[in-house]
Computed example of a mutant assay.
Amino acid sequence: MTADRRRDDIAAYVTQRGEARIDDLVAAFGVSRMTIHRHVEELARQGVLRKLHGAVSAQPSGVYESLFRFRETRNAPAKQALARAALAEVAAGQVIALDDSTTVNALAPLLADRGPLTVATNSLTALQALAGADDLHLIALGGDYHPTYHAFIGHLCETLLAQLRVNLLICSASAISGTAALIQDPQVVRVKQAMHRAASRRVLLVDSSKFGKVALHLFADLTDFDAVYTDDGLPPETAQQLISAGVRLKIVTLA
């Protein structure tokens, strides 16, 4: 197991329980206390976990929710339904940008037989899913690889996006508060905002569990998107408030 994979597993283990003792982590992962302490130090430095005396706890800030391997297990049926619904936005011949979200990564494999398309993405998962697909021109938005997001972010990625213009952006957000789409990490925000600026049409996919939540940084207002897809778990009164505020909301019924 790689160090990055073990760190992700440790973070998921702790966040699922809220708190864990160092001795429990040693037993669960079969490595030395020194190795566990080294991983915990790095996760604490990233702001994912909080060190306690002889134990470690999940940060209450929601930073841990940025972990790709943790996020991809959350609300999977809703993400799959939103991905299928978003196919209606895709037309042959388009240039499409996809962000690194697990919701949009559920869409990526569905595009393999929708060509001809050009797809630009910073998501390593999406790149792997689409590599070699017929009638599909794939653009890797490179930069600094970040294992937490399984994606490329940073200055190089933002600079490349500034040189592109795409027909359609399909993206997601960490949380929705009122009509604000929010993201925890400022580096991820900058990449998503660069994608937003590069796109003629912008579509947001957010499952209903993200509404009424908070993350640190503003990505965009929901009214800045041409369509906002969510599932029917959204309370009707919330949906009506958003529509009244000018949000172009599309409700997807879960099977």
Rank of each mutant, 00 (worst) to 15 (best):
G246P: 07
D9S: 12
I183G: 02
H146P: 00
D113W: 01
L168C: 06
H39A: 15
S32C: 07
L138D: 01
L205N: 04
R5C: 08
G54F: 02
L242G: 09
T148V: 15
F211M: 12
G178Y: 06
A129M: 08
A44P: 00
G142I: 15
G18K: 02
E89M: 08
A108K: 01
E237F: 12
D100C: 06
P109G: 02
L127E: 07
L25G: 07
V56L: 06
A58E: 08
I170K: 04
A85V: 14
D144T: 14
S101T: 15
R45L: 01
V90G: 00
V56N: 06
G18S: 07
M1Q: 11
L156Y: 11
G246C: 08
V48I: 10
L127D: 03
A88L: 00
V95H: 06
L52S: 06
R201C: 05
A220H: 08
L234I: 11
V63R: 04
V189W: 00
V214T: 14
A220F: 00
D226N: 09
R45I: 00
K210L: 03
R17S: 12
Y149R: 15
A78R: 11
R33T: 15
S101R: 10
R33P: 03
A28T: 14
L254Y: 00
L49R: 09
I36Y: 03
D4N: 10
L218D: 08
A255V: 07
A220W: 02
T238Y: 01
R197F: 01
F29K: 10
V191I: 14
Q59M: 02
A81K: 12
A108I: 11
I22C: 03
A162F: 02
A255Q: 10
K192Q: 11
S177L: 14
M34I: 06
I139W: 02
R248Q: 12
D224C: 03
K210D: 01
L87M: 09
A58L: 06
T118P: 05
E72Y: 04
D134N: 11
F219C: 09
G246T: 12
D24W: 00
A239P: 00
A58N: 04
Y149T: 15
T121C: 04
K192T: 10
M195R: 03
G115W: 02
F211R: 11
T103A: 07
V63H: 01
E89W: 03
K192H: 08
L160Q: 13
A227T: 15
V56M: 07
L82K: 02
Q59C: 06
S172F: 02
H37Y: 12
H155S: 15
Y13P: 05
I153T: 13
V191E: 05
V40T: 05
V189H: 01
